[in-house]
């Protein structure tokens, strides 16, 4: 981490605060450095087969790597770490549709800002693993494609792709996922970052197709807290979907609990949908520190060996 880096671990900071401290590239490096510092290992260490060392358990770690003998003997919660041996080809599929450019409160990042920083950090983390990483940005069409590569220059290409146009009206997620499958020639990893404002049936076949090709699919479902709990600073109003133009009249204070219950049902359906396809699904709120989703996604990659 550079001299101007935050004094605390970047992966545990408030996302909006962290984003205000530096450019996307810098923030990504802080995040990766912070995450790796928390893991107490070199970039080349992972959860492979050859034991390297122990480190303290962190929330989000895969319990399969917990050293239960040490736990039983010394009452210390330690995770076993192994020397990295294999490389993975990963493609990050990033939703840049108009709905992503929204935030529920002025002090928060938009869903897109959050997702871009998360994607950049994840890409850098994988690149440091010497994995090959690619990027697909999509809205109602494919906006940017960076084929998966490893190496120092790849991260720069990906950063440049973040500056491409986007935020169209809709989300063609099925097309983007299909494109991702084509970009990865052999078994690899597809990481989808989206607000999933669509019906699960629209991408069911695509996800199952990817799984059929042997790809690991991880979905990071980005939500603004206001979308999760309908915490909108408004009285009775007409709420308008910026992508589809649909409307609904509601008084947030009157229907907040009912709405939260409905969203809870929808999230459960998404979880079931991805689980039935053998994919990993994680809802993320944009006021959460980046460390949590990064750790979950990284742990998922480590399972691939």
């Amino acid at each position: 981490m550079s001299a101007s880096a935050p004094a605390v671990r970047a992966d545990l900071m408030d996302p909006a605060t962290l984003a205000a401290l530096g450019r996307l590239e810098v923030v990504s490096r802080w995040l990766v450095d912070g995450l790796l510092a928390g893991l107490h290992r070199s970039p080349k260490k992972g959860f492979s087969v050859e034991f390297a060392e122990h480190r303290q358990y962190q929330p989000g770690d895969d319990l399969r790597f917990m050293d239960w003998k040490v736990v039983a003997r010394a009452d210390r919660w330690l995770i076993k770490q192994f020397e990295e041996e294999t490389n993975v080809r990963a493609t990050i599929v990033l939703d840049v549709s108009r709905s992503m450019a929204w935030r529920g409160a002025p002090g928060r990042l938009t869903k897109l800002d959050y997702a871009e920083r998360l994607a950049a950090a994840l890409a850098l983390l994988l690149l440091r693993q010497r994995d090959a990483v690619g990027l697909i940005r999509f809205d109602d069409g494919i906006r940017s494609v960076v084929p998966p590569r490893s190496g120092q220059s790849q991260f720069g290409k990906m950063l440049a792709a973040f500056d491409d146009a986007g935020a169209g009206q809709g989300s063609d997620l099925a097309g983007a996922l299909a494109q991702a499958g084509k970009l990865i020639a052999r078994r690899g990893m597809v990481i989808l970052i989206s607000d999933l404002l669509l019906e699960p049936e629209e991408i069911r076949d695509t996800v199952q197709g990817l799984r059929g090709q042997g790809h690991d699919v991880t979905c990071l479902h980005v939500l603004d807290p206001a979308e999760r709990r309908f915490e909108v600073a408004s009285g009775e109003a007409t709420f308008v979907d910026p992508e589809r133009g649909t409307e609904s009249i509601a008084t947030p204070a009157d229907v907040r609990d009912l709405y939260a219950s409905t969203v809870g049902d929808a999230l459960a359906e998404w979880r079931d949908h991805f689980a039935s396809a053998g994919a990993f699904y994680e809802p993320i709120l944009t006021d959460q520190p980046f460390g949590v989703p990064l750790r979950r996604a990284f742990a998922r990659r480590q399972r691939l060996g």
Binding site: L223, E227, T238, F239, D241, I249, S261, T262
Partner: peptide
């Protein structure tokens, strides 16, 4: 005059509101 509310607020997750109204219409 509930249905004539004038304030318009952009809210991407309208689909959840519509689903809520659909599933809990009588309750609402």
């Amino acid at each position: 005059w509930r249905r004539r509310a004038q304030a318009r607020v952009e809210f991407p997750a309208v689909r959840y509101l519509l689903r809520m109204e659909r599933e809990h219409a009588r309750e609402v």
